[in-house]
Amino acid sequence: MEQQLDFLVDKVVAELQKKLGEATEQAPSPKAETGGLIQLRSEPKAEPVASATTAPTQAPVANEQPAPSAEPERTTHVPNPKYKEGLDELLSSTPARIGVWRTGVRPLTKTMLELRRDHAAAVDAVYGEVSQAVLDQYSLFTVETQYDNTENYLKRPDMGRVLTEEGVRLLQERCQKKPQVQIVVSDGLSAAAVDANLKDVLPSLMDSLKSYGLTCGTPFFIQGGRVASMDHVGEILEPEVLVLLIGERPGLVTAHSMSAYMCYRPRKGMVESERTVISNIHRQGTSPVEAGAHIGTILSKMLEQKASGVKLVL
């Protein structure tokens, strides 16, 4: 078992390195990456949805996080498998819910409840709110978009891209203008992702910026934000570069995945290919601490090259 775990950890680390490389090589472009359902995604790049090149790496590694949406238990209920060792081999090769057995043509009660439990966690993440304590810890004040309420947020992505008048006023009053780096945090589609990852991502990002000798403006939190809300912030504060840490659409394996969208001189009318993204930031995916450091590196390159997205060479 331990050996298997080591093997899995190795595999995951290898994958992560590959993914992190891939994720940052290019902003996901619809033409390069489309395929199948991915082509039909609502806003494959603009929204906090794992895209094809940055699809989550979800391997069945041990999970320290007490997440209700932890990885499915890797036990099998097939009573008399033809090849018992083979079943373990299959289970270790995928996080998919296989080897689950059945009663008649329906799933066993335990399997059914696991699915419902993980769905509940995902739904909670969408409808949840970011903990005030987490925001306070990093002195993030809150501004809202015009989303109004969660139902409207889900139906009207356009309203999640524009801050309220009050929000604009707050930014003008409280934020440093024309900073070199602007950090913005938003709940997006998973408040739980902010709660789970901010404490790791933010300090390592700050350290990284410091090591590159970059200065940071006044960070804040956007409630009800969509990816393109960074464009509106760009208009108001005119940063050189901006990073938006935003909750992704929750999946069943994890509801805690976060994306970092980065842009050089963000402004209204940005096209998606001008953004650079690291997605799949969570403890079973791209490690939040590593992600924070990596974001710092990317931002410094953006400043050097005065470019982001597909034009950025990493």
């Binding site: 359902l37 991915i38 949805v49 794992a50 699809a55 989550p56 979800q58 995928t94 996080p95 998919a96 819910r97 296989i98 689950v100 059945r102 043509v105 329906r106 799933p107 399997t111 699915l115 993980d118 769905h119 659409r249 929750p250 999946g251 069943l252 394996v253």
Partner: peptide, 21 residues
């Protein structure tokens, strides 16, 4: 999809059990 849970595309569809049913 195994137990309706697509672990790559992160959405739920119909399961093998569902189609059998």
């Amino acid at each position: 999809v195994a137990m309706a849970d697509d672990v790559m595309l992160n959405y739920q569809s119909t399961s093998f059990h569902d189609i059998a049913a």
